[in-house]
Design a protein around this nucleic acid. Structure first.
Length: 514
DNA sequence: CTGGGGACGGGGCCC
DNA sequence: GGGGCCCCGTCCCCA
C-alpha cells in the first residue's frame, strides 16, 4: 500500500494552467480540474499534477526548499485568496444537471450576490478520469471588480493561495438524488472564485470540502481564531473536508506551481486552513460540524502561539493529505513522492480497518450516519455501501476486542486518550492533539527565517539550530559537534563500534499500538 | 556517516 | 494530589 504525504496545495483539484495552450482554445487562465487519469500510463501534458510535479521539480532543482512549495506566506498576508464567507450557497440553474459553457453562477454571499460565469468542460468519461472527474473550468467574473481581484481569482485557484475547497451543495444533497453527486469547488479564496462541479457518474466521486472563509487581513492567528491556546473560532466559521471512500485523498489544493516556481522567495505556499485539511469523511450537518469543531478545537488548542514572540510564528498551517487510494484507481499516488519528507501518512483506510475505536471516533462513521451525500446513495451505490460496512464492521469487532483487552490491562487506563484517527492511546489530551497533527498535517509552528513549519515547538526549536549554526552536542572523543542530540549519540557509535542497526526498535508505529 | 525532520515518552512546573 | 501544559530527550527515518 502506498502511503504518501503531501502538503495540501500540492495537488490542486482545480489548477490554473497559465502557460499551457488548451486544446479547445481555452484562455490562458483556464482552470483545470485535476483528477486522476486512470488507465493512463503517463500523465497528460495538461494534467496539472504533472505540471506541478514538473514545477516542483524545477523549484527543487533551483534549491528551493521543498517546503517553499507549500508556504506562500506573503500571498496570504496580502490577503489573496482569503475567503470572506463563513457560509454561502451556490445556485445552479434549474434544469441543468451539469455545468457547461458559460452558465452564470449566482453566489449568494449573504451580503450580496455576484454573478460568475463558469465554463465547465467535462471529461468524456468522468469516472475514467478518476474521482472528481476531470473538467476544464473557466470562470469569469462579471461583477465589476478590480483586475487584481480577477487575477486573484485565477491564481488563487491554482496557487492554492486561497483556501480552495470544495463544498457540498447541501441543499441539493439534502434532496435524495441518487447517482448524482454534487460538489462545489471553491476555485478562489474569494467569493467570486467559485465553481460548481457536478458529475453524473454513478460512482461516488465526491470530493467535498467545506470552506472556511475569511478574506480578512487579520493575522493568521487571529484569522484562525486562535485564542491564548490557539483555540478555534466558533463553529460558524468551521469547515470540513471530506472525501468519500473512493475519493482520492490527493485531491489537494495545489499551489500554483508555476507561480511558486517563479517566486524566488518561495513565498507562495498553498496551504489550507487547518480545518480545511483533508480529514475526509466529514459532513456539515450541524451535529457533525459540532463534532468536528470539538476535534479541531483540540487540534489547535495546544501550543500554537509564540509565547516568546520571536521565533515561533503561528501562521497558516500546512496540511498534509493522506494520499492513499485504492490501488485500482490510485493513478497518481506517485505524484507525492517527490515532495514528501518525513514519514508517510497513515492510511486512513488501513487505520480504519484496524482501528477498534473507529466506530465511535472516526469521521467515517459520522459520514455514514450523517452525510447527506452518503445517505443519498442510491441502490447503485450499494456495493460501496457494502464495502464500507464491511470495513466498519471489522473495525467494530476489533474495537470490541481491544476493549476486552483493555478491561484486563492497565494500559487502557494509562493511555486513555485515543487518537480519533488511528486509535493510538496517549496519556493526556495534549499528546493526542499533537499526535493527531500527524493525521491532520497541522503545523502551527513556523520558522521565522525560512518559514518551515513544524507540528511541535521542540522541533522548531531544534530546527533553528540550522540557522544559528549552534551545535551544542559535542563528541568528547573527537570534538565533533552536532546540532541534533541523537546525531551525537549515533556518531559516538562510530567510536564504540556499536552497530546502531542491531538495537531493536522499541518505538512502535502509530498504527501498531491501537 | 551526517544532517535534519517526524514522532513520541517522560518529567518538571504551575494551577 | 491531579491535571494541564510545556520542554526536553530519544528514536526513527530519509536524503
Amino acid at each position: 500500500m502506498h502511503n504518501s504525504k503531501h502538503s495540501v496545495g500540492l495537488y490542486h483539484h482545480l489548477v490554473r494552467q497559465p502557460h499551457r495552450p488548451q486544446p479547445q482554445g481555452s484562455p490562458e487562465d483556464d482552470v483545470v480540474c485535476t483528477t486522476h487519469h486512470r488507465g493512463q500510463t503517463t500523465c497528460p501534458p495538461g494534467h496539472p499534477q504533472h505540471q506541478m510535479f514538473q514545477e516542483a521539480k524545477k523549484m527543487k532543482d533551483n534549491n528551493h526548499p521543498s517546503h517553499c512549495l507549500f508556504t506562500p506566506l506573503p500571498s496570504r498576508r496580502r490577503g489573496e485568496g482569503h475567503l470572506t464567507l463563513g457560509h454561502r450557497s451556490i445556485v445552479k440553474p434549474a434544469g441543468h444537471n451539469t455545468w457547461r459553457d458559460d452558465q452564470p453562477i449566482t453566489v449568494d454571499e449573504g451580503s450580496g450576490t455576484s454573478t460568475q460565469h463558469v465554463i465547465m468542460i467535462e471529461s468524456a468519461d468522468a469516472e475514467a478520469a478518476g474521482p472528481g472527474g476531470s473538467s476544464l473550468v473557466k470562470q469569469e467574473r462579471t461583477e465589476g471588480d478590480d483586475p487584481q481581484h480577477s487575477r486573484n481569482i485565477q491564481t488563487g485557484a491554482a496557487a492554492g493561495v486561497a483556501h480552495p475547497v470544495v463544498t457540498e451543495d447541501l441543499s441539493t444533497a439534502a434532496t435524495p438524488q441518487p447517482r448524482t453527486l454534487h460538489s462545489i469547488a471553491e476555485v478562489s479564496g474569494k467569493p467570486n472564485g467559485v465553481l460548481k462541479r457536478e458529475t453524473d457518474t454513478e460512482t461516488l466521486t465526491v470530493t467535498k470540502r467545506l470552506l472556511h472563509t475569511g478574506s480578512d487581513h487579520r493575522s493568521d492567528t487571529e484569522r484562525l481564531g486562535l485564542g491564548r491556546l490557539g483555540c478555534p473560532p466558533a463553529p460558524a466559521s468551521e469547515y470540513l473536508l471530506y472525501d468519500d471512500l473512493r475519493t482520492v485523498h490527493s485531491h489537494l489544493d495545489s499551489g500554483d506551481a508555476t507561480e511558486a516556481g517563479n517566486d524566488p522567495s518561495c513565498s507562495y505556499t498553498p496551504e489550507m486552513e487547518p480545518v480545511n485539511m483533508a480529514l475526509g469523511l466529514e459532513t456539515q450537518t450541524d451535529q457533525s460540524r459540532e463534532d468536528w469543531n470539538r476535534y479541531s478545537s483540540s487540534v489547535y488548542s495546544e501550543g500554537c502561539l509564540d509565547k516568546k514572540g520571536e521565533v515561533i510564528v503561528v501562521d497558516e498551517v500546512t496540511v498534509k493529505v493522506e494520499g492513499n487510494t485504492p490501488p485500482t484507481w490510485n493513478a497518481d499516488s506517485h505524484l507525492g513522492d517527490g515532495y514528501s519528507q518525513g514519514r508517510d501518512f497513515l492510511d486512513y483506510r488501513e487505520s480504519l480497518e484496524t482501528n477498534p475505536n473507529v466506530a465511535t471516533h472516526s469521521p467515517l462513521h459520522t459520514l455514514r450516519d450523517r452525510d447527506p451525500v452518503f445517505t443519498s446513495m442510491g441502490p447503485s451505490d450499494s456495493h460501496n455501501r457494502v464495502l464500507f460496512d464491511q470495513v466498519l464492521n471489522s473495525n467494530e469487532r476489533a474495537r470490541a476486542q481491544v476493549q476486552e483487552r483493555g478491561a484486563t490491562s492497565g494500559a487502557s487506563k494509562k493511555k486513555q486518550f485515543l487518537c480519533m484517527f488511528c486509535n493510538k492511546g496517549f496519556s493526556c489530551p495534549q499528546k493526542v492533539e499533537i499526535h493527531q497533527r500527524v493525521h491532520t498535517g497541522v503545523k502551527p509552528f513556523s520558522c521565522a527565517q525560512c518559514h518551515m513549519r513544524f507540528a511541535e515547538a521542540g522541533t522548531l526549536k531544534r530546527h533553528q539550530r540550522v540557522h544559528t549554526g549552534e551545535k551544542p552536542f559535542v563528541c568528547h572523543l573527537c570534538r565533533a559537534s552536532f546540532s541534533h542530540s541523537f546525531n551525537l549519540k549515533r556518531h559516538q557509535r562510530v567510536h564504540t563500534g556499536e552497530n546502531h542497526t542491531a538495537a531493536p526498535s522499541v518505538r512502535s508505529s502509530p498504527t501498531s499500538t491501537s
